[in-house]
Design a protein around this nucleic acid. Structure first.
Lengths: 346, 346
DNA sequence: ATGAAAGCGCTAACAC
DNA sequence: GTGTTAGCGCTTTCAT
């Protein structure tokens, strides 16, 4: 079938060992031989059989990555981060998507393990924090991204979710808002953490939270509509908020448009802060200020951790990294009068 | 290290051959033995070494898929289609992204081949239609998606791009529009084909095209802004269009908002038709009618073709499938007065 | 119904 | 600098 080391060896009257050495860049081969071999490899379009190699070496230079769903800008950003680190180190990232099916997630992970990946990365959905049973029994380094798993003995790189809420609250408080509504998203651990961070920010500023302005919003589907409706309703009450924080950018877009429809000037009379920094949404129409979830950085850090874990196979180093979100200001929140000057803080 | 067939065999006082048979579901094993083996496999969390297996069999039950960029709803949809067909057939899809780097694309493809994928799928960028040199010399079935490559001897599943333009034109013509602007997108083969389909539709309806309403728009970045500007400018001329077809949904969103800003009522005074059926964009604010590119179906068909090609290894069947786009009507184009009745056409 | 032998393509360890 | 030997974990073929 395909062309093998042996074929090249026969062809050149050498032993396959010499060819193998050239292939792997060993130095104990004469320059001349090396050149000949390389040339012939090119001509014959030789491709080393990775199965054979990894059977022999126990290493595949492959890292698996299981994601719940591909159509997610965070996943795309994480992959960029991963590749950034892993490609130069000669590792290939193999992504497999569960397409929204939680059971497929575990199956995909199993497949990766069977394929002898050198490390396995798992992107946790927001609503699940535990690892599949079967994964616990492996020696392969596991790295969780996005969501810290319940069990302690795992490496993870996750966003400090409570900081998302805190940062959001602070941003608006700093801009003079006191009457802040909060579209809190679904009932998940992540949403809860964000919300508690928000409450903390309010508390620190001695602003009491208002029950009636906290709205739970299911994820998925017509988030835009839900954001729109929620804010429209609030603005019809006697007691109106002057700003809103949304769990997602689609919700924020709906919120923004509801306020505009109500005749409010943004950001003077009403401010909107989204979450996710989804460019596709934040840059359609009036730019939405949003929290960047720093997914690319999460990818970079996870990749580094994976590499380290691969090296010291035995070392059970259990590191958990928390990444801080960043705020991206656009048109829906006020500019501060005095932009931060070096050496001072606003 | 990991647990092997041999370990289970020793454990149960059987030969590893018997274990292997159980593993592969051979029938010539007693039910009792089979049960014992299966049980032990479970307990020990045995995972067959795929490298070894595929070294032996030459098959990996893995199909590679190289995409230029992950953050693309078409790619996500294609993957859903692929998995739909391939998972039941026990194949794993291994996605690798080139992250926008055309050279990485070829490297990733090579990696897949070295890993002995049973078939390799390639998603062509709109601006490139040829295959990397090195891929021509392989026996592995190649399937091109999205974009038919220049060389004839290849299997491909692609969208009938000219139909996108034709369908767009027809949709608006049917709704009484004659003065149709066209934001034609970048200078790529795909955009050209769509445009020619559009011209064809105009021609068939005896509507002469108007140079000044055809605007070239670069891809990427601030498409929304560009769509907005283009339509704003057009609407300030004396001779105004009454509808616009956009190469992408972001452009369409900009176009829609420019028309609204100009005080036009949509869809009565101005119609907008997008392309891509990107839900994230089409459902923010006034729903944008758009052309669905049927990516999931492309995935399904490509997967079937790949499976066929794998089976009859020798059979050089070169099939090219063209998929027809579909229109999804929303608020930015007029509803037809008499919705199509069975047996009649409007 | 169960097992022994051989070998897939490659590389580690060691001669020469 | 180059070659020899052995074996990674599995499956194929053929005995028993």
């Amino acid at each position: 079938m395909a062309i093998r080391l042996q074929d090249i060896a026969d062809d050149l009257n050498l032993s396959k060992m010499t060819i193998s050495k050239v292939l792997r860049g060993q130095t104990d081969v004469s320059a001349e031989t090396k050149a000949r071999v390389l040339k012939r490899m090119q001509e014959l379009n030789y491709r080393p059989n990775i199965s054979a190699r990894s059977l022999r070496t126990g290493q595949t230079y492959t890292i698996g990555f299981v994601v719940p769903e591909l159509n997610d800008p965070r996943v795309a950003a994480i992959c960029r981060g991963l590749n950034q680190v892993l490609r130069p180190a000669n590792y290939a990232v193999v992504i497999s998507s569960a397409d929204g099916d939680p059971e497929a997630e575990e199956r995909e992970a199993e497949l990766h393990l069977a394929r002898q990946v050198d490390a396995l990365l798992l992107y946790g959905r927001d609503d699940v924090s535990d690892a599949p049973e079967a994964l616990r029994a492996t020696n392969v380094p596991l790295v969780y991204l996005g969501q810290k798993p319940a069990q302690l003995a795992a490496i993870s790189v996750s966003l400090r979710e409570s900081e998302v809420g805190r940062l959001s609250g602070e941003h608006l408080l700093t801009r003079g808002a006191r009457r802040i509504a909060y579209l809190r998203g679904p009932r998940t651990a992540v949403a809860d953490q964000r919300f508690s961070g928000y409450l903390e920010a309010l508390h620190k500023a001695s602003v009491p939270p208002r029950q009636e302005w906290v709205v739970e919003t299911k994820a998925g589907g017509d988030e835009y509509e839900r954001g729109f409706e929620a804010v429209r309703t609030m603005l019809q009450q006697r007691s109106r908020p002057e700003a809103v924080i949304a769990y997602s950018d689609s919700l924020a877009a709906g919120a923004r448009d509801a306020a505009v429809a109500q005749g409010l000037r943004i950001p003077d009379q009403f401010q909107v802060l989204g979450c996710g920094n989804n460019l596709q949404i934040c840059s359609i129409g009036m730019g939405i200020s949003s929290i960047d979830l720093c997914s690319e950085e999460i990818g970079v850090r996870a990749a580094r951790l994976a590499l380290k874990a691969i090296e010291k196979k035995g070392g059970e180093e259990t590191r958990s990294i928390g990444i801080l979100p960043r705020l991206v200001q656009r048109a829906t929140t006020k500019r501060l009068e005095s932009p931060a000057r070096p050496g001072k803080r606003g």
